[in-house]
Amino acid sequence: MAMESELAGAAVRKPVTLKYPFERRDVPPRFRGRLAWDAEKCVGCGMCVQVCPAFALEMVGKGPMAELRYYLNRCVFCSQCVESCPRDALSMTEEYELADYKHKVYEFKRG
């Protein structure tokens, strides 16, 4: 019977459950969502590809004009590529509803 006083509180307060697809929580400031690429800043050094633990990034072409291929289904959202990028060309967006039936591949293109 030790919980009766706690239960009395529950009877008058609103449930804590979020009705998820209808109610959403705010994304925290440091949230790590889907990757975004800034073509202007990228110099094609390939650092991001080297540090990616999930092999989710791939350079298409070589040198400063190289483009990036991003395998969304492999990404573990650790944000190491963002940290390792010497030119800040990569960033994490706040997108998080990424489940899909297909293996999504983003082809980041220049221009």
């Binding site: 919980m3 706690e6 239960l7 804590v16 925290p28 400031p29 440091r30 949230f31 790590r32 573990v76 959202f77 650790c78 944000s79 190491q80």
Partner: peptide, 29 residues
């Protein structure tokens, strides 16, 4: 089960703090 729900509700407090510091709930990196 009641204790289970109550404890887990209050655990959200710590989860929110972890999310605030690191950005994600589970894998803080």
């Amino acid at each position: 089960d009641t204790l289970f729900y109550y404890v887990w509700r209050d655990r959200e407090l710590v989860m929110d703090l972890l999310e605030l510091i690191s950005g994600n709930r589970v894998n803080y990196a």
